[in-house]
Design a protein around this nucleic acid. Structure first.
Lengths: 231, 231
DNA sequence: GCTGCGCAAGAGCAGTGCTCTCGAATGTGT
DNA sequence: ACACATTCGAGAGCACTGCTCTTGCGCAGC
């Protein structure tokens, strides 16, 4: 029952956006009366929270499946590209749900615990690619690269940021250098920035070759992390 | 009169968010009756559009002022940092207005012409910093850097993206190499990605030293564009 | 003094989230 | 088999929303 409500709500979401999601309209579509929905969801926010959780998990599923489809696990760049592309493609296919999770939150809304775990799936996977590459010896420690003045950025990390990175590293991918995790976060930010700006209309009249542009940006992030060129 | 309505609406916006902005509540605060507001705005969307336009211009003003405060125009990195910091600080000071312009748009809403011009102010300024640096001989053509295998990314630009970049370059900063503009856009995306993720709660429990982290990311973008280190 | 006009007030319509009560169905224990 | 409890949807109703339409007040120009 709750599943059917959510399914109809998702259709309305895609058509009218989160702001205009009406419980009455949803129940009307199901041949029910509006008050019946309160048996299953305490209020509208609770329905939205359920949809948010589902959206995070749908995105996580799509990204993990795409990344896992790269059989040769040593092809880091292919894994990176598959994962990041999957994010963009899922977002384009489900713009309302993407907006729900990465758009402006309602003020006063606090995400429940289980949503943060679901939300972490996508960035965790990206970090995992880099951590795995490092463990396999395919990626150098960026700090060493900088010391050898090889191509790459220099790092002036403050202590507070280094502590944040260390804590996240221990959660996500123990053993990974902090600087490498930082470059992963840079790629994560770039990816969501690019998808959000595209989806929210900021690329209009500027970038038209959007898929190509996105791939180029993600390649640049792979360069930055020191991934070897694609075979 | 329209100015007073917008001012009260901005307060409500900050308190309740765009989704819950109520014309009746605004007019009630002004001691008016709800129907009176329709003399000044055709409907709620038109009020929101006016607020959006104001927000873009307020952000543009803040960023331009901050960047212009760097007197020595040859200090590219200082200009870059001042401009990008101003974006983040304006966003933190005006989260609801930031969400209004860079958050999820209402489906079916098409931005009027004058808003796109206002929206372009901030990215145009960032591009201007790079274009000016190139004109002053402080920034190399990234394609030349790559050819000389100096630190920096490699470029595999497709024709369609190159055409987009060329068109934007001619609009914004004639004479600038396309690859340099591309790096500027990378920084632009990174900046709005970082601000949006922070403001929309995705950094919770991950990055706590947010100002420092943001500066570090923006420095990394400056490195990428080949800006000389700060004095 | 009369006439327009700008402006706000008020009533009213259709829609919303949400609460409460009531009645019908569906088990469950004896 | 009967009485009970629980579950669930229906319906009415409250306070709120955006928006329209009509009415009437007050101030300018002729």
């Amino acid at each position: 029952m709750t599943a059917e409500i959510k399914a109809v709500a998702r259709q309305h979401l895609a058509r009218n956006g989160a702001a205009n999601l009406s419980l009455r309209a949803v129940t009307r579509d199901m041949g029910m009366v509006s008050s019946a929905v309160y048996r299953y969801f305490r209020n509208r926010d609770e329905l939205l929270t359920a949809l948010i959780l589902d959206a995070y998990n749908a995105l996580g599923d799509a990204v993990e499946a795409a990344e896992a489809s790269v059989k040769d696990r040593s092809r880091l760049r292919a894994r990176w590209r598959a994962g990041t592309r999957a994010v963009r493609e899922w977002a384009l296919a489900n713009p309302a749900e993407y907006a729900l999770i990465y758009g402006s939150p309602v003020p006063g809304y606090a995400a429940p615990k289980d949503t943060v775990a679901a939300a972490a799936r996508t960035p965790a996977l990206l970090a995992q690619i880099l951590a795995d590459g490092y463990a396999r010896g395919l990626l150098a420690d960026p700090a060493d690269r900088a010391a050898a003045s090889a191509p790459g950025p220099s790092f002036h990390l403050g202590e507070a940021v280094r502590a944040d990175l260390a804590r996240t590293r221990d959660d996500l991918a123990p053993g990974m250098p902090e600087e490498l995790l930082l470059l992963g976060m840079t790629g994560w930010i770039q990816m969501f920035g690019a998808v959000s700006l595209e989806l929210f209309g900021q690329f209009n009249n500027v970038i038209e070759a959007r898929a190509e542009f996105f791939d180029q940006q993600m390649d640049l992030m792979a360069d930055l992390a020191g991934m070897p060129p694609a075979a």
